[in-house]
Simulated scan of single mutants.
Amino acid sequence: MSNAVWALARDNTWYREGEQAARYLQRPAIAVDVRNAAAMIAICKDRLAGFS
């Protein structure tokens, strides 16, 4: 996934943005203990807020 993002960024000369996106996508996942669906939705929205 990060390779595709980097290729698109490079084609459009978005080097800084492509590098940041690739770094974000390659970071290790974190474990989160979720006990209900509402909490999971809140966590996902928080994680994806930077992509809007």
Rank of each mutant, 00 (worst) to 15 (best):
L48N: 04
N3Q: 11
L8N: 06
W6Q: 08
C44G: 07
E19S: 00
N12R: 06
W6F: 11
I43H: 15
A9C: 11
A42Y: 01
R35V: 10
D46L: 14
A9K: 02
Y15A: 07
S2C: 07
A38P: 00
A21C: 09
I41W: 03
A37F: 01
Y15F: 09
R10D: 12
Y15P: 04
Q26G: 04
N3F: 13
V32Y: 11
N12T: 06
S2I: 01
T13P: 01
D46N: 14
D33T: 11
I41A: 07
M1I: 07
N3Y: 09
A29Y: 12
R10N: 08
I41F: 02
A37T: 04
A4W: 12
V34S: 14
G18M: 02
A31M: 14
A21D: 00
F51N: 09
L8V: 06
L25E: 03
D11N: 08
R10Q: 10
N3M: 12
I30G: 09
N36E: 05
A42E: 12
R35N: 12
L48F: 10
L8R: 05
A49E: 11
D33G: 07
R16S: 07
A22P: 00
N36A: 02
W6A: 13
N36D: 13
C44R: 10
T13F: 12
A42K: 13
T13S: 08
V5D: 01
R47E: 15
Y24A: 13
A38E: 12
I30N: 05
S52V: 02
A29L: 09
V34E: 08
A4N: 06
P28W: 02
P28N: 03
R10M: 11
A7N: 09
